[in-house]
Design a protein around this nucleic acid. Structure first.
Lengths: 102, 102
DNA sequence: TTACTATATGTCATATCTGACATATACTGG
DNA sequence: CCAGTATATGTCAGATATGACATATAGTAA
């Protein structure tokens, strides 16, 4: 993982404890977190591009403002399912999702 | 028609395009189900390519034979998170996952 | 037939996720 | 300063997913 990605993840609070522990993330764990990060960033970007507030998006998705905030923040309690369903609902195509993950 | 029945029918081999119309699935729901289907097929293919039984894979992933079977069957109780984590653990790259979804 | 192996299916206690809510923080323009 | 708006964060009851287990089904070989 390059430094930029590490920094992004660290900024989101994904360090489990010490920096050493962070560096000990397995390849699978890193890949999984990177995927979630990419999706959360895309959600925020899409919402802003549509000029929606988190509250408005929450209403459209039948969710809540706080959960939208957590999605965009890449919170641990947010599932890939919710991120993917939300992105599809906001108009991001399956194809685009694939590219994001790649 | 409830979602459980929709999922069952969709699983029985209806083609996606017509199934979406007939089953009254939204574009997002179809895309989501297609993604899960692609991932579940890849999991089965990867397991068989490695000549592992469901039981052996379950041990490796610290899961159970029944859950592996449900993952490969695209069961509605299986999350994208579990599918993705399992695929990453079995050696499928993030990049490959992206292509699968596309 | 029987015995064995692999996979599928149903159930359930527990773990995890979710929407909702309260509240905090940040940034406006009075 | 205040009031309004948007976003972030913490908590929790209820919803959903999980591994484990029992059991069913399918295929193979003796």
């Amino acid at each position: 993982m390059d430094k930029r990605k590490k920094a992004k993840l660290a900024k989101k609070g994904w360090t489990v404890g010490s920096a050493a522990e962070f560096l000990d993330l397995s390849a699978e764990e890193s890949a999984y977190l990177e995927m979630k990060l990419a999706l959360s960033e895309k959600l925020k970007e899409s919402r802003i591009r549509k000029r929606l507030t988190q509250e408005q998006l929450a209403d459209a998705l039948e969710s809540s403002q706080s959960r939208i905030a957590k999605m965009e923040a890449g919170d641990r309690t947010v599932s890939l399912d919710l991120l993917v369903k939300s992105l599809l609902a906001i108009g991001v195509s399956k194809k685009e999702l694939g590219k994001l993950i790649t």
